[in-house]
Design a binder for these strands. Structure first.
Lengths: 190, 190
DNA sequence: CGGTCTCTTGACGGAGTTCAAAGCTAGTGG
DNA sequence: CCACTAGCTTTGAACTCCGTCAAGAGACCG
């Protein structure tokens, strides 16, 4: 039941059986229904989440009252607000499940102990977060250089299966255009 | 001469004197003139840079042939292309000095050895890159929710001293609008 | 089924781009 | 130390991509 996480970790570091046992004893699997919140804006984030099944997203509510999705997380992705987590400051974001999810939630206290007991995890999270940062840079590049239509087609090509899983208005906001415009792109009326 | 880096590291982890000696023996300070490139698009990135003096930026050239700055790095910031670095793939970015710089360049080989010799550095880089990732998320939030004029004023308020240091067209592209439009914002003609 | 989300369509408007030309500034070499 | 030049900034007019609004059509879930 924790195997997706162990598999993911073993891609980057090799844990001893004893370390796996220790880690396992600290983990809890949670089943969360669709549309539930893992984090609310204004709340201090002190948990990190690893999705083993389903899909979650990080979003904000803009000045017009519309939700805008900043990030999706699917199987084998971590999701949290690292700024709020590290600085113990109120979060600017909501984190919400998009589908019924199974996920591993690790509290800050637990994680801090684990990182001390199993220093290899420092390496694991270092590599994972450097890659995430790299991916965020690429995301900004695409937002900068592509038109709305190009972003849509590009995303569709890279994630043909994922597109089915989320409502179109969420994807539209992730790609930074309106749901109406997305509809026109899909209809070829643009 | 390496003190800015040691100071920065000691904010997050405490190194033993022997570790400091080892680290020091592996570092080289480089003086780089303004407008020189540390990384070219298409090249595999196998160096990370810590700025001790000056300013550098990561940028791309868009389809119209215009440079667009994705990130600035000033004193006490790391800059590199982590995706190219980790995957050994050609970079999508240029990295270039904006001012005359003094920086510490660490090759991938050297860094990998250092991380093994001084495991605390794993922790240091984990924390730094998680914070960077958090900052990238905030950047995307601002790009999504603010108008061009709001982004300009917001950036000016947060970095009043920095704005003087870079040409306006670089800052305009970083904030994702044209140099001409920036000029109009500054003149209050918008 | 009934109501609430979600998606579509068209008309209109506006924030920001593009282009071209002129004005300014700073660095460089004589 | 001045003059020249290349790079940077400003300005205005025309244009365009995409947002907003409003209304209707589906689709899904209880």
């Amino acid at each position: 039941m924790f195997t997706p996480l162990f598999d993911h970790i073993q891609k980057f570091v090799t844990l001893e059986p004893s370390e796996i046992d220790l880690l396992q004893s600290c983990l809890k699997l949670a089943k969360i229904k669709k549309k539930e919140h893992l984090l609310q804006e204004g709340q201090v984030c002190n948990t990190i989440y690893f999705i083993t099944k389903g899909c979650a997203r990080q979003y904000i509510i803009n000045s017009k009252g519309t939700e805008q999705t900043l990030q999706f997380a699917i199987e084998n992705w971590w999701i949290t607000d690292y700024l709020s987590y590290h600085n113990t400051t109120p979060s600017h974001f909501y984190i919400q499940t998009v589908e019924n999810c199974e996920l591993i939630a690790i509290e800050k206290n637990t994680l801090e102990s684990l990182l001390i007991e199993i220093p290899k995890l420092e390496r694991y999270f270092r590599i994972v977060s450097q890659k995430s940062f790299g991916a965020a840079q690429m995301r900004i590049k695409f937002l900068f250089t592509m038109s709305a239509e190009e972003r849509y087609h590009h995303f569709n090509n890279l994630n043909p299966d994922f597109v089915q899983r989320v409502p179109q208005y969420m994807l539209a906001s992730y790609l930074d255009f309106s749901a109406e415009f997305m509809s026109k792109i899909r209809a070829g009326k643009v």
